[in-house]
Design a protein around this nucleic acid. Structure first.
Lengths: 104, 104
DNA sequence: CCGATACATAAGCATAGACTTATGTTAGTC
DNA sequence: GACTAACATAAGTCTATGCTTATGTATCGG
């Protein structure tokens, strides 16, 4: 997993939509396809990209494979963004709000 | 400028390196090429991508064009990441440190 | 154990993207 | 006003990538 992989993985709109779905809760590959007009292999390939980027994790259960958000990828992305914190001072208030939420 | 544009722009290692350079300080297109083995048009095209993604801003000055980091792009990226804050609680301490730095 | 289900993998194709050389345009220099 | 420097844009090429169909491999139900 590297920054390159993460940005490349999220550059594709379909993969971002898949990731968004997983943020709502764990789902298997078939459930993830609902609503998308995508072949099964296409989804499988997208999931492989997200997985190798460290953005999602898989867990096999019988013949199903459950996917969920892997915090590692987001943490990596956050760390990258953090390097440029000097350029977004206008977001301090939002961050403070975030911390208040997290402290609860 | 959209999320797609931002992730696509940052997916390319060269463009991320260019962006990183600009974070050190404003530079023109010729200065940015130093150290890279890239043709002038290639750099120009990369800058166009970063610009249309809202990640850099340009300012013409004579026959030079000065580029600098545009906070809007980073803000957009930060906002996207913020939607998934539930998945990175382990970074609370880093964020608190960040806010302490920013408050100074 | 046999068909169906839930995937992954392989191979082929068509478009997108990163690069090149060539050229255009505007601003400084003499 | 020619010449050069600092860019942008155009056109062509080659590779990466996202998709498809076809196939392989477990697992579950009857």
């Amino acid at each position: 997993m590297s920054e390159v992989d993460i940005f490349k993985a999220l550059a594709d709109p379909t993969r971002r939509a898949v990731f968004e779905r997983l943020a709502d809760g764990e789902k298997n590959a078939t459930e993830l396809r609902e609503g998308f007009s995508l072949s099964q292999p296409a989804m499988s390939q997208h999931l492989a990209v997200l997985r190798s980027a460290g953005l999602v994790a898989e867990q096999k259960s019988g013949r199903h494979v459950h996917y969920r958000v892997n915090p590692d990828g987001l943490a990596q992305l956050h760390q990258w963004l953090h390097r440029y914190r000097a350029f977004w001072p206008q977001r301090v208030d939002e961050l403070k709000q975030l911390l208040r939420e997290m402290d609860q």
